[in-house]
Amino acid sequence: MLNEEENQKYEVWLRGPIAGIPALLQPAAHALLQTSEEIKKYTVNICPEQLWLQPHGRASIAFHLQHITGVLDRMITYSKGKSLNESQFEFLRAEGKEDRTITIAHLIEDFDGQLDEALAYFKTLSEDVLKEGRTVGRKKLPSTVIGLLFHSAEHSQRHTGQMLVTASIVKSAQKN
């Protein structure tokens, strides 16, 4: 058994199961926890001026962080068989709109709060529920509980990868 310090050297999926999470949701939980670790790692020393930069027309660091938080919230809502509420639509409309009062710490805190809610929700689910059909959006596109939860995880990893490229570009531009 590895101690905590040794354990942190490995990606989350190599650290073993997360207590209380159904086996079929372990990969999604691992990916979401990996997202949390990576956004903290790759946004070290990002100053407020860099947060909203869009190098080469790409999405800003702030957009990616807002978007992964919002998508996680929306996918959880759909997985519960619910429709989005007005505050979720407002959050969606605000994603990526520059707001200099928002800090990197605030964005990370928002994601981690949503992550905590998601993991707590995962723990309430039985594996039988995961195959149940759900719909997405106003068009009621078909999915399943597990499909929605998996999408929230893979989507967060995709945007984390895009965010780290943007962060490396804005950091290297600052050095030049």
Score class of each variant (00 low, 15 high):
Ala94Glu: 08
Glu6Met: 10
Ile146Thr: 09
Thr101Ser: 14
Leu130Pro: 11
Ser156Tyr: 00
Pro27Ser: 04
Thr35Arg: 03
Glu6Phe: 02
Leu115Cys: 05
Ser126Glu: 08
Leu115Arg: 07
Gly70Pro: 02
Ile61His: 04
Arg100Tyr: 01
Gln114Trp: 01
Gln88Cys: 01
Arg158Phe: 12
Lys140Ser: 13
Lys40Val: 05
Leu72Pro: 07
Arg158Asp: 15
Thr135Gly: 11
Ala28Gly: 09
Val71Cys: 11
Gly147Ile: 06
Ser36Trp: 00
Gly57Asn: 11
Lys9Gln: 06
Pro55Gln: 03
Met1Gln: 13
Gly57Val: 06
Phe63Arg: 12
Ile18Tyr: 04
Glu98Lys: 15
Glu154Cys: 09
Met1Asn: 12
Gln26Pro: 01
Leu125Val: 14
Thr124Met: 02
Gln88Arg: 01
Glu127Phe: 00
Val145Asp: 09
Leu141His: 04
Gln157Leu: 15
His155Tyr: 03
Gly57Leu: 06
Ile68Lys: 03
Thr101Asp: 09
Val44Pro: 01
Lys131Ile: 12
Ala167Asn: 03
Gln162Met: 15
Glu86His: 12
Thr69Ala: 11
Ser156Pro: 00
Glu37Gly: 13
Arg15Trp: 05
Arg100Pro: 00
Lys97Arg: 14
Ser87Glu: 15
Ala173Met: 11
Ser126Asp: 14
Asn7Cys: 09
Tyr42Phe: 09
Asp99Pro: 02
Thr35Ile: 04
Arg15Val: 12
Ile146His: 06
Gly133Val: 07
Lys82Asn: 15
Leu141Cys: 05
Ser143Tyr: 04
Gln174Pro: 00
Leu141Gln: 11
Leu32Gly: 04
Pro17Gly: 13
Asp99Gln: 06
Ile102Lys: 11
Ser87Thr: 14
Ser126Cys: 07
Lys80Phe: 05
His155Val: 04
Asp73Thr: 13
Glu11Lys: 09
Leu2Pro: 14
Ser168Lys: 15
Leu53Asp: 10
Gln174Tyr: 10
Pro142Glu: 06
Asn7Ser: 13
Ile61Glu: 05
Val129Thr: 15
Val44Asp: 11
Ile39Ala: 07
Ser60Thr: 00
Leu65Trp: 04
Gln88Ser: 03
Asp99Phe: 02
Gly96Gln: 12
Asn85Ser: 04
Arg100Ser: 07
Thr103Gln: 02
Val12Ser: 02
Gln54Pro: 03
Gly147Asp: 01
Ile18Arg: 08
His159Leu: 08
His106Ile: 07
Leu92Lys: 13
Val71Trp: 09
Ser152Leu: 13
Leu92Tyr: 10
His106Leu: 07
Thr144Pro: 03
Ala59Leu: 11
Ser172Asp: 07
Val170Gln: 07
Leu51Ala: 04
Glu95Gly: 09
Tyr121Cys: 10
Pro27Gly: 07
Arg138Gly: 13
Leu24Val: 10
Ile102Pro: 10
Lys82Glu: 15
Gln66Ile: 01
Leu84Cys: 13
Arg93Ile: 10
Val71Glu: 13
Ile61Phe: 00
Lys40Ile: 02
Val145Pro: 05
Ala167Glu: 08
Ile146Gly: 09
Ser168Ile: 06
Gln157Pro: 07
Ala105Trp: 01
Thr101Gln: 05
Val12Gly: 01
His64Cys: 12
Glu86Lys: 15
Ser152Gly: 02
Ile146Ala: 08
Glu38Phe: 06
Ser60Asn: 00
Ser60Arg: 00
Ser36Glu: 08
Leu53Met: 13
Lys139Gly: 08
Gly16Ser: 04
Thr103Arg: 01
Gly137His: 02
Ser36Gln: 06
His67Arg: 01
Ala59Asn: 14
Ile68His: 10
Tyr121Ala: 10
